[in-house]
């Protein structure tokens, strides 16, 4: 009798531990990042992160179904090999060969990003895809039409139902799935990261470059994410009527301010600036050294002792470039988890 009871308890414990194990396996799918990263800004909230949801988001990211004529997907302008920036083109091509006015940004570490777009106009990762999907020169697809296509699609309608339950697909489900995929794009395996984790050492030039970087660039391109997500006027010559942040706030003091981009993967994401005007890192460094244009709202960090710009010697520039190349994360650009 007693042994029977024990056997029963044992069986119970086994079932219990097995079910716990099962839970553990499911919750293992999540954001991973090194301990020197801050806590992510996006905490998913009601959007429950699962492998299935992530994979659905990935399928949608690669599928031109979200554009009006099924010719452009998110991936058309955000390619993994370029850290999810466009294929080294200044301005991307949308539906029917149309083109916008700004450079496609690279996509990674978005869960840490509080605002989106070059002008910071979008306040949440979940509603970010609304802009490229509906923009007339990008995917040109109204949301109602996009949702209709997904509901009429045999595979997608099934996949959405298995994740979000037995109800028609709505834009929230689409945005949740895309947010799961986009948030999971975490880049933290560059040589710089290996160095931070004590797994690699920097060359003398790279190390010198890091010191120059910390002295002259890091107040805006703050480690470890290499941006402080602020909006600043960095003294670019005005080439068109893009007001940047000023378009959002309608304050003239915000005109021509743009979001500070991360410098991670910077060697892979040329051309540079909000409009892709600089093709090389040399041009970028020359701009900060000697190309700064004076504006009333020019970022104060770009005027030191009455002198415009950040003085950089030729040697500084070489060393800075050597360091910037340590920010390329080839594990990220070749991670099969992110590709279809």
């Amino acid at each position: 009798m007693i042994s029977h009871k024990i056997r029963f308890l044992f069986l119970f414990a086994l079932i219990w531990s097995y079910s716990c194990q099962d839970d553990q396996d499911k919750s293992d799918f999540g954001l991973t990042y090194p301990d020197y990263f801050p806590a992510p800004h996006y905490q998913f909230g009601k959007n429950k992160l699962t492998r299935e949801g992530f994979e659905l988001g990935r399928a949608l990211f690669f599928d031109p179904i979200l554009s009006i004529d099924s010719t452009i997907s998110c991936e058309s302008c955000h390619a993994q090999g370029h850290a999810f920036a466009d294929h080294n083109t200044a301005l991307s091509t949308g539906i029917a060969g149309l083109s916008g006015t700004r450079n496609s940004p690279a996509l990674f570490n978005l869960a840490w990003q509080p605002i989106f777009m070059w002008d910071g106009g979008i306040n949440h990762i979940e509603v970010m895809p609304l802009a490229p999907i509906t923009n007339e020169v990008e995917m040109g697809q109204d949301m109602e039409g996009a949702i209709k296509k997904l509901n009429n699609h045999p595979t997608y309608s099934k996949r959405f139902r298995s994740i979000f339950g037995e109800k028609p697909i709505d834009s929230q489900q689409l945005f949740y799935a895309l947010a799961q995929y986009m948030s999971m794009l975490v880049s933290y395996n560059s040589k710089y990261d290996q160095y931070r984790q004590g797994k690699s050492t920097l060359t003398a030039d790279e190390d010198d470059g890091l010191q120059i970087f910390r002295a002259k660039c890091a107040s805006c391109h703050t480690e470890p994410l290499f941006t402080d997500y602020s909006l600043r006027n960095n003294g670019l010559e005005i080439l068109n009527d893009d007001l940047g942040y000023g378009r959002i706030t309608l304050e003239t003091s915000d005109n021509h301010k743009f979001k500070v981009p991360s410098l991670r993967n910077i060697a892979l994401t040329y051309p540079y600036m909000h409009d892709g005007r600089f093709r090389t890192l040399d041009q970028v460094l020359d701009h900060y050294d000697s190309g700064i244009v004076q504006y009333t709202n020019l970022d104060p960090l770009l005027i030191q002792n009455g002198q415009l710009g950040i003085p950089l010697s030729q040697e500084d520039k070489l060393k800075l470039k050597a360091f910037l190349h340590t920010l390329s994360d080839f594990t990220f650009t070749s991670n099969p988890l992110y590709s279809e």
């Binding site: 959007n47 109204d142 949301m143």
Partner: peptide, 24 residues
Amino acid sequence: RNASGAQTGALDPAKGMFWSWNSG
């Protein structure tokens, strides 16, 4: 609700009552 991400029902951006480029 203007700053809480994707919403449903009357607040679904598919209703055409949400700015894509300047969230709200």
